[in-house]
Nucleic acid binder design. Structure first.
Lengths: 193, 193
DNA sequence: TAACGATGTATCGAGCCGATACATCGCGCT
DNA sequence: AGCGCGATGTATCGGCTCGATACATCGTTA
């Protein structure tokens, strides 16, 4: 899940850890909050071991000795490898039920511009079903057990129901748009690097 | 965080793990999804070791031998202890910055009916500040960097902004209500067991 | 009575987070 | 010049949590 996100970002341009984290935070909106370094760095090492990414060297220039003193660790820039790009495409295409969860959905959605239309539709519809179920859960509680709940729990349920409802409508718009655009030529796939 | 939730529920009535999980899921609305058994059972044991909760026995009745055969594990009902009730009150009152995070906020909110007004206000206002910051983050991205983003990322940001905006308004309503009710006698603290 | 789904307890590996430590860089203040 | 301070940057550790899995019992229905 983090794998997909990192590979996707590195595909746009080489980057080091800190930058990666920042881009992730903004790109993923509410759904996925911020990624922590305790997850990021181990993942980077795992990806490097697997061969999906490699260090990019940051122009070593012409020094005689390697580090003069004070170990000098400096920033580590990573770039994606050819195998990494394949892996990215695989991850993009293979959509299991976990892709509808909050976090994973956010990541998948963030790279929709590089995803096939059919896959996009599959994900959006799966997500919609999931949120619809959540919405029905709220409805049930409010309908069947409202009198047994205190005022605050009730308020929380009402707010949850409304949020779910909005999200379903949002997804519906997106789905309708995909269908329309897949009829006549999509004109463009607006992704600006 | 799970501690608070479990102690709170057990205060309403003794319960076993499975039931605990169900109640949690519905009571906590969207904010906190479902709690997994991999978290629940270890936590229960920890709480029991600490002395906050104890097994309630489930009416052992009058059997001569303990388990006839087939180890017969059966359901384990837990009840809260006196120390546990103290602990619950402590956890309710001590509101650090972590109480404004999604998960913790949901749990705290779920037990607002048994929380002091000042504490309720502190939590609601802290939460509002947090969501306001999140909202500003979305605004910044949409204002400053909109032209550099692809259509889907843009859409995600817009949806995030709208959701954050709604939540701020919701919190504002709740805060206004608290203030109003803390002026004249609250009339009642509607919590039905 | 046999099958099946809901109920129920429990563990394991892996992922992820928050806190923490440490180092460097650029900037402004005095 | 010197000093501090916040942003940038890499890295680890303990602990919590999740998803998957296993296993057992109960009630209902075919």
């Amino acid at each position: 899940m983090l794998d997909l996100a990192i590979l996707g970002l590195l595909q746009e341009s080489p980057m080091h850890g800190y930058e990666l984290r920042k881009q992730l935070s903004t790109k993923l909106g509410t759904i996925r909050a911020a990624i922590s370094y305790g997850s990021l760095y181990p993942t980077l090492r795992r990806l490097q071991t697997a061969g999906w990414i490699a260090e990019a060297g940051e122009t070593p220039a012409d020094d005689e000795a390697v580090p003069p003193l004070t170990s000098r660790r400096g920033r580590v820039v990573y770039k994606i490898t050819a195998e990494g790009k394949e892996r990215f495409q695989d991850l993009l295409a293979q959509v299991g039920p976990e892709a509808y969860e909050d976090a994973a959905f956010g990541v998948h959605f963030a790279f929709f511009a590089r995803t096939d239309v059919e896959v996009r539709l599959r994900i959006l519809e799966g997500r919609r079903r999931k949120i619809e179920e959540r919405r029905e859960g709220f409805r049930d509680v409010l309908g069947r057990a409202a009198e047994r709940l205190d005022a605050y729990t009730l308020e929380l349920q009402k707010h949850g129901l409304e949020a779910a409802d909005r999200e379903v409508r949002w997804l519906e718009e997106l789905i309708a748009n995909e269908r329309k655009n897949s009829q006549n030529p999509p004109a463009d796939n607006p992704w600006r690097p």
